[in-house]
Simulated scan of single mutants.
Amino acid sequence: LPPAPARGRRGAARPSGDDRRRAILETAERLLDERGYAAVSVDDLARGAGISRPTFYFYFSSKEEVLLALLDRVVAEARARRPRTAAAGEEPAALLRGVIAAVHGAFSAHRAVTVAAAQARATSPAVREVWSGVMEGFAAETAALVEAERARGAAPPGPPARDLAVLLNSMNERVLESCYAGTGPSVDAEHVVDLLLAVWLRAVYARPGPPPRTPPGGPA
C-alpha cells in the first residue's frame, strides 16, 4: 500500500474536551500559587489554557466553579488516603496518624487551592456550602471511626461520637489552614501531624500522645 499522505494543518489532532478542562484546572492551580485567588481572572485562566474566553465558559461558568472543581479533587485525594478502620493488631496511634496525615498530605500538596478556598469562603456562598459538606463528611467518617473503636473495646466511652468528631475536625481545619496560609498563631508545619495526633489520642482513647520531638539544635 502507498504511504498515507502527511496530515496537514487541518488534519492535526485537536485538544479534546478533557484536555481543555485539564488545562484550565492546571492553569488555575499554578496561578493561585503565584497570585492568589482574588488576582486571578477568567481571562487569565483562558489565556493560560490556550483557549478563548467563550470556550472557557463552555467548561466552567466562573472562576469560582474552577476553584470548586480543584477543591473536589483535593478532597477526593484526602479521602482516598484516609483509613477507615484499624488493621488487625494495629496500634490506635497508627490509625489516627493515618487519618490526620491523609488530610494533611492532600491539602498541603495543594496548598494554594486550600488557601484560596479558605479565602473564598468569606465571600462565596457556593464555596461555603461545598466546604460545609466536606467538613460534614469528614465529621461523619471520624464519628464512625470513633464508634468502631469503642465497639471493639479499643476506646473508652465518652462524649457523643459526632460531637467529638466535629470538634476534632474543626481543630484540624483551623490549625492546618494557619500552617498553609502562614497566618498566626500557627504551629510548626513539620510537626503539625504529631501535635494534632497527641490531642486526638487524648480525646478518643483518653491516653497521652507520643512525646514531642526535640527541635533542631536540641532543647530550647
Rank of each mutant, 00 (worst) to 15 (best):
P125E: 11
Y59Q: 07
S41I: 06
G89W: 10
T85S: 00
S108E: 02
A120Y: 06
G89P: 02
G133Q: 08
V115I: 15
A86I: 00
P92H: 02
I51V: 12
Y57L: 09
A78C: 01
V42Q: 08
S61P: 09
A118D: 15
E136V: 02
A39R: 14
R35E: 10
Y37N: 04
R97W: 07
R81T: 12
R35H: 08
V40E: 14
A109K: 04
V99D: 00
R79V: 09
A69N: 07
A112G: 13
H104S: 04
A78P: 01
Y37S: 05
R111T: 14
S52P: 03
A112Y: 08
I51G: 07
R73A: 03
V127I: 09
F107Y: 09
G48P: 14
A88I: 00
G133M: 05
A49M: 11
A143T: 11
E90S: 01
G105M: 10
A86P: 01
H104L: 05
F107R: 08
E147M: 04
R121D: 03
S61A: 11
S124Q: 04
R81H: 10
P54T: 09
R79K: 03
F56E: 02
H110W: 01
A102Q: 05
F60R: 07
T123A: 07
V134S: 04
V127H: 13
H104E: 14
S61V: 12
L70H: 09
V99E: 00
A118F: 12
L96E: 01
A39N: 06
R121L: 08
R97T: 09
V146R: 08
L67P: 00
P83R: 00
A139D: 15
A76H: 02
E147S: 11
E91N: 04
A116L: 10
A93L: 02
G48D: 10
T142L: 12
A139P: 15
T85E: 00
A69C: 08
V103F: 07
L70T: 05
R82K: 09
E34I: 02
L95H: 01
A87N: 03
A117Y: 11
E65T: 07
E34N: 05
V113Y: 15
F138H: 04
E136P: 01
Y57M: 11
A120W: 08
S62I: 11
V127S: 14
V146W: 13
A76F: 00
A39I: 13
T114R: 14
A76C: 01
R128E: 10
A117C: 12
V99Y: 00
R73G: 01
A39P: 07
G98D: 09
A116Y: 02
A118R: 15
A101D: 15
F58H: 14
G89N: 06
I100T: 13
Y57H: 15
A94Y: 05
G36K: 03
G36P: 07
A118L: 12
D44C: 14
A118V: 13
F60Y: 13
V75R: 06
A38Y: 02
R121K: 13
A140E: 15
S52M: 10
A86K: 00
M135Q: 15
V130T: 07
V75P: 02
A39Q: 15
T85R: 00
E65W: 03
D72Y: 15
T55S: 13
S62G: 11
A102D: 03
S52K: 15
